[in-house]
Simulated assay, not measured.
Amino acid sequence: MAVDQEDEDVAIVDPPPLGKLGPRKCEMAVDNIENKVAFGVAYEEGGEMSTTIHGVPLKAGFIHVRVDGSIKGDALVPVPVVGEIETVDQAIGSHLAWPRDMIIFSPTVEKKKKAKVQGELQRVHALFNSVNPKEDVPPRFRVLYKFSKTMMKESGSSIPVPCDAQVFGMERTIYLLEENVTVLLEFNMIGQAVISTYMAYLHSGFRDTPGRDLSSSFAFLHPATYMLNDKFNAYVVQRLKEGVNRMNFMPFNYNLHWILVVIWESEIFILNSLPHYPHPDELEKALMRAVRAHNAELGRRCPKQPGGTECGYAVMRFMKDLVEDPDMKLLDKWAARSRKTYSNADLDIVRLETLDYIQSIM
């Protein structure tokens, strides 16, 4: 590609080919590539985020995008949700399918002159120092907070968390975006990426437990957005076959609330940290079909969350407590003590463990 004649000390480098990177910032066009209407993030790495949208498989030639802002707000999106998301303005903050040939990735700019490099470093350094971490950010994570709010936010980069096939039954990489790291640092509501990372952290310690190889006792199912269909059933059955006597954990987002499904010895336990929350009947039916069981235990008693937004942290704490119980009797103990509530301090432990793990792999 030609160098800009007005700034000969700047070289433009074409972006890597599609399919080689994780989430990346992009612009989106309609009708023709010059007609840019929106900007956001494209998920192009292999895995659930790049092959489905709201649990529905993407059609050939389409890519999973998140719309962050509009260039032409009244432009029509290529794959609308009729009556809800039809224009770019309506799509802001949403995840959509977008034609692959209408995605524009910005080229990287390599600055050759030392003076310009130093100027950029000074700007970033000043920006880094200007960030004031919030009170909920522990002192040892303040550098990570500044890194997230500056470097990650400006570049659209992510922190990759590689997982081998033993973690979820398939090799995959979790990509922690700036917003994932920030909500965890600020003790706000978390989602799939953070919970998956905590599961990877728990698995990393399985073989390090003195006297116990926990990988033969516990297993994880990835907390993706599932359609309760034959593909879901096949995945559950696959994980159960890999370890007949293992306790299997599957976080599941039900009506924007995280619950933990535990499958153990042909029984299904649904751990819900909110009292009086609707029971996930369709999920239970799908799981019963998958494990060929008829004795699912409805509304299993378990500790509750202290407020209204800590469900993800409660799911992580459920898994921690069950993994660390040497007698594997905690489900029965919880059933006998239905009034237990996790404190913020209880949930903060798993938050800090996750942050320590993220820092250790960077």
Rank of each mutant, 00 (worst) to 15 (best):
M1C: 13
V3Y: 14
D4G: 06
Q5K: 07
E6C: 03
D7W: 04
A11R: 04
I12D: 15
I12H: 14
E27V: 08
M28L: 15
A29C: 12
V30W: 00
V30S: 01
K36R: 14
V37T: 00
G40C: 10
V41H: 00
E44Q: 12
G47S: 12
G47P: 01
E48S: 12
S50G: 14
T51N: 09
I53C: 13
H54D: 12
I63D: 13
V65I: 04
K72W: 05
L76M: 06
V79A: 09
V81K: 11
E84D: 03
I85V: 10
E86K: 00
T87Q: 03
Q90K: 15
A97R: 08
P99V: 05
P99M: 11
M102R: 11
S106A: 14
S106C: 11
P107E: 12
V109Y: 12
V117H: 02
Q118M: 09
Q118F: 04
L121G: 13
V124F: 14
A126V: 01
P133L: 11
D136I: 02
V143C: 05
L144R: 03
F147V: 07
S148L: 07
T150Y: 04
T150K: 06
M152D: 14
M152N: 15
S155G: 04
G156N: 11
S158L: 01
D164F: 07
A165Q: 02
Q166H: 08
M170D: 06
R172P: 00
L177W: 15
E179H: 14
V183D: 01
L185N: 15
E186Y: 00
M189F: 11
Q192I: 04
V194D: 04
V194I: 12
T197S: 15
Y198L: 10
A200D: 04
A200K: 12
G205M: 08
G205D: 08
T209W: 02
P210N: 04
L214G: 05
L214I: 02
L214P: 09
L214T: 04
S216F: 10
A219G: 01
L221P: 00
P223H: 11
T225I: 13
T225M: 13
Y226C: 06
M227Y: 06
L228T: 00
N229V: 12
K231I: 10
F232S: 05
A234T: 14
A234N: 15
V237I: 12
Q238G: 06
R239Y: 08
L240G: 13
E242R: 08
G243S: 11
R246Y: 03
R246F: 03
M247Y: 04
M247D: 01
F249E: 04
N253V: 06
Y254F: 11
L256N: 15
H257F: 07
H257S: 05
W258V: 08
W264C: 05
E265A: 06
S266N: 14
P275W: 02
P278F: 05
D281A: 12
K285N: 10
K285M: 11
L287K: 06
M288I: 00
R292F: 10
K304L: 07
G307S: 15
G308N: 14
E310Y: 13
Y313A: 05
Y313K: 05
A314S: 13
A314P: 00
M316T: 01
F318K: 09
F318T: 07
D321K: 03
E324I: 02
P326E: 07
M328I: 05
D332Y: 07
K333A: 14
W334E: 08
K340M: 08
K340N: 03
N344P: 02
A345E: 10
I349H: 11
E353K: 01
L355D: 00
L355S: 00
D356W: 10
Y357M: 02
